[in-house]
Design a protein around this nucleic acid. Structure first.
Lengths: 225, 225
DNA sequence: AAAGTTTTTAAGACTTTTTTCAGCCGTAGC
DNA sequence: GCTACGGCTGAAAAAAGTCTTAAAAACTTT
């Protein structure tokens, strides 16, 4: 179970790292926002613990960038300020929980436990939107009684949409997320896969469709009944 | 939030512009020092991103002239050279920050964020004016309960108005902004698109209208209730 | 190594956006 | 009231962007 800890106060970072490691977690600790993003994108974490006050790029920025990129790792925000405003900002930007400093060991462990258990190996996570449900584990997409198996690329692509169901995603963004930064995939690759996905959505008779807005990108759209 | 991007490498300029626009900034890109000065003086920007190596007038010159003129917009200098000497020259002439090429997206956004936030404004995802609201993300224009999808050009054009809702914009300016500097668009192109936009505003029953002032240009106007 | 699957490439059909054009309308100046 | 110029708008033509399909290439599995 991997945790990314982003905290610039070195003493606190060291202490938290130690506590978590004692519980059997594998912990990477970084101390600024930019590194946080590098790490978060470079490897799979099951939880990110994110301080708000950070050099280079603050916690909210990091959060926003990661979510915008389609990463849905649980994120636990940490802050010295106990202001409610911060809490709201954090949760709105897609944080999963919020812990104010100072906190004690038990409390931290409780929160970490709650967030990591949530995606425990046994529980199947389902990404849902309208009548669709995508099993993150098996890449099976269901709607009503029917279901189909998605291929890996179809799965990656559809996840981008299901993570931010109201966003319009450019082909560029989709290439980045589904093919990776240094791929040579072209717009046509995206088009082909969108076509594959549409065929499956049609087969499932879902009310959700993928709509194209020329030059801008794709977005989910729900057909009226 | 308006940004002026001064960069002569067209590919880089295009890429950066796109990145910033995706974040919801409004970006004008110019490719030489003289135009940079024209633009900087002609409209309000909250940030200028300035390449050092430029045709006609180099970045330092531009910087010096603008500062001498009393412009105190934050300026982010960009350069291929990583020489410390440049950095010192830049900061001494009044640059606010300094980024060496090549840089990655995150780093650029972090710096831009830092410099634009400094003046307390938050990035707008929705451009609002009177009863209108335009989503910068999806190019959807709404008013009351209704909304319509704008095409790319309609979107570019309407943004010009919503960014400076009190200005009268000449056709020339609009061509520059929506079609780009080296396009062959005629006045009639603008007229046609204004007509498209008006049709959509009418459909939305907005109180905002686009008014023409002969020989001068177009301006937003709010109908009395 | 064969069979099956997934991914990439490519080409033509199709759709939407953009441009062009022509005729009409309205205001300003006579 | 007439003329001239700038502006408006609908429709057709052109261009750009997207969709779909089929076949080739790259992997996987057996």
């Amino acid at each position: 179970m991997n945790i990314l800890l982003v905290e610039d106060e070195l003493n606190l970072a060291r202490a938290v790292k130690k506590i978590l490691e004692q519980q059997g977690y594998y912990v990477d600790a970084v101390h600024d926002g930019l590194s946080a993003i590098d790490y978060a994108k470079g490897m799979e974490y099951q939880l990110i613990i994110l301080d708000v006050m950070l050099p280079k790029l603050d916690g909210f920025e990091v959060l926003r960038i990661l979510r915008k990129d389609g990463l849905n790792v649980p994120i636990l925000m940490l802050t010295a300020r106990s202001a409610v405003a911060d809490k709201v900002t954090g949760l709105n930007s897609g944080a999963d929980d919020y812990l104010t400093k100072p906190f004690d060991t038990e409390e931290l462990l409780a929160r970490v436990g709650a967030l990591t258990r949530r995606r425990g190996e046994v529980i199947v996570e389902e990404l849902k939107y309208e009548d669709l449900s995508l099993s993150v584990q098996s890449a099976v997409l269901s709607c009503g009684g029917e279901s189909v198996q998605l291929s890996h690329k179809e799965f990656e692509l559809l996840k981008c949409f299901l993570y931010n169901p109201t966003m319009t995603l450019t082909k560029e963004t989709l290439i980045l997320r589904a093919w990776g930064a240094d791929s040579e995939a072209t717009d046509n690759n995206v088009e082909v896969y969108i076509s594959f996905l549409r065929k499956k959505l049609r087969y499932l008779r879902s009310r959700v469709a993928i709509r194209n807005i020329q030059k801008l990108g794709y977005r989910l759209e729900v057909e009226p009944c």
